[in-house]
Design a protein around this nucleic acid. Sequence first.
DNA 1: GGCGCATTTGATAGCGCAACCGTTAGCGCT
DNA 2: AGCGCTAACGGTTGCGCTATCAAATGCGCC
Lengths: 332, 332
Amino acid sequence: MGKKLLLKDIAKLAGVSEMTASRAMRGAQDVSAATRLKVEQIARDVGYVPNRIAGALASKTVNLVGVVVPSLNSSVFPEVLSGISSTLKTTALKPVIGVTGYDLLEEEEVIREMLSWRPTGVVVAGLEHNEAARKMLANADCPVVEVMDVDGDPVKHCVGISHLEAGREMAQTILKSGYRKIGFVGTKMPQDFRAEKRFKGFVEALGETGVSLIDQELYSGVSSIETGNMLTEMLLKRTPELECIYFSSDVLSVGAYMHCLSKGISVPDDLALAGFNNLELLRGLPLKLATTDAHRYMIGQKAAEIILANQDTNSLAQVMTLQPQLTTGQSL
Amino acid sequence: MGKKLLLKDIAKLAGVSEMTASRAMRGAQDVSAATRLKVEQIARDVGYVPNRIAGALASKTVNLVGVVVPSLNSSVFPEVLSGISSTLKTTALKPVIGVTGYDLLEEEEVIREMLSWRPTGVVVAGLEHNEAARKMLANADCPVVEVMDVDGDPVKHCVGISHLEAGREMAQTILKSGYRKIGFVGTKMPQDFRAEKRFKGFVEALGETGVSLIDQELYSGVSSIETGNMLTEMLLKRTPELECIYFSSDVLSVGAYMHCLSKGISVPDDLALAGFNNLELLRGLPLKLATTDAHRYMIGQKAAEIILANQDTNSLAQVMTLQPQLTTGQSL
DNA sequence: GGCGCATTTGATAGCGCAACCGTTAGCGCT
DNA sequence: AGCGCTAACGGTTGCGCTATCAAATGCGCC
């Protein structure tokens, strides 16, 4: 372990004041090229790493953007992150990730932890938070962007799609294709509010044509190809007359497709399938599955742009609604 | 945006000294239950979030563990993270993620950034770093654990498997199954050193039985089912006599399997497939694909344990080698 | 040479909080 | 009552760095 080098040690070695060394390390102006190079050289030689904690306290600026997401297991949130990173790449800001596990209490903790580091901005997935979390976000002394979803009441800025609308649109598309014996498969994540909204929109839109779900299968836990496969098997066993199943996620619909492949069920002739997210997973399969793209990458980019635009100024709250893009593929 | 509440404001509101308020907020001892509750209540009411920057500077302790990974796109590193989180859950430490994009220069940046926050510990994926990064890690005033891989020269602590060995073992298994016309498909990520080591071990072990690869296909970019599908198609077109293909990742072998499904190629009769990682993705497919489990979750857990054990003490460097676990499945 | 201006450097004063003691209050005991 | 002891609280100091402004230096030009 190191010898705990301080800025003053570097300054002494370089024969300059602490202040000049500080400026040189930060690449600030008002330092001659010669002294800057000298200080940088010495710092590199002795392996000095500035103490950002002290720096942040003194300057009251932290070049971090907190990003709070429910999970990193699916590729859904990593894609949002990629979008954020791509936009921040050219700036001095860096994303810091917090994971809540779809748990609102844990989310509160994570948000408190993030805010306690006084970041330049915060991005939070979803609009549903507990009272304490909402209050903290509302009081936060930095721009706050809620992402993914616009169906609700944003604390401040917001970028996302309407999941209600996405569900409705898929229902309409399925109905238009002529299917009437329709089922639903999803994981029963009590706090996956977006999946819930899609389900709600889906059922609503079916109802408007006088159609209702003839069966559904819910599962507590994480979505995976395996659960999609299993749940589909169970559903079909119980209700073999199903013509079409809507899944709360593409991983589930892929699992269903795998089930169909192994049982010789023809898609979409015997059974039509539709998922959600337009995951990369869908590409490279023998059949293109129906899905809805939620513009995850762009959502990340836009959120980062909003933070950049509001880091000093404090303009009005901005709500940006993107249009989910449905792809029929070959499975409907 | 908030009014910038300070500890002293809370103290004033609660009618206690700053010091007592501080202790109450941190749940420290030497505070009566009554005052603690009062302070907590007031803090919650006004939405006070302590400034950790100041706290960290004053106490010289930061309850963060930096985790540096190349990517979050596959589920490989998120699983390591899950392992880390699970172990840290019961402690005061929290993981902070940094992503390098398989770029050593970017890795240096990310490591510098992490260390500048003086974390309690650092976990870094891989053993290959540039000179500056190695130096920083070596000088870091906290435990450092390199994970995933043990083939190399660790800076300090290390937990992982031998990827050379994993490649060798798969080669031996494939040879034992009688295949001789063997190909390889991988993405040409110049800095995915672990994939490279598996390839090297694989080719070496083939060579020891006098067998050599009859063809291979490399691709620059990210691994995906789609690229696995495409690369397999290209490889088979060029070298139709192939009996078995080893892939640098399960996503590629799944892509290959998808190709086989759509072309009516029987696995493993017409073509045997083997991947690496034992991703969750493999479960729920019609056929179990051969793979090697790299114990990602456990690696994360062990790394976190090492950090916990060394956060105060500074014991000897510890190298923990786990045994990769090969599964033949039904594709060999 | 001396003046004015721009550039570079340095001394001082915190940033917001917690460690470190010192102080006070509370309580049981002789 | 007086003593000792512990629990609870508070004042002072400083963590390592940067903002701010003052000082010094260099430099062009009359």
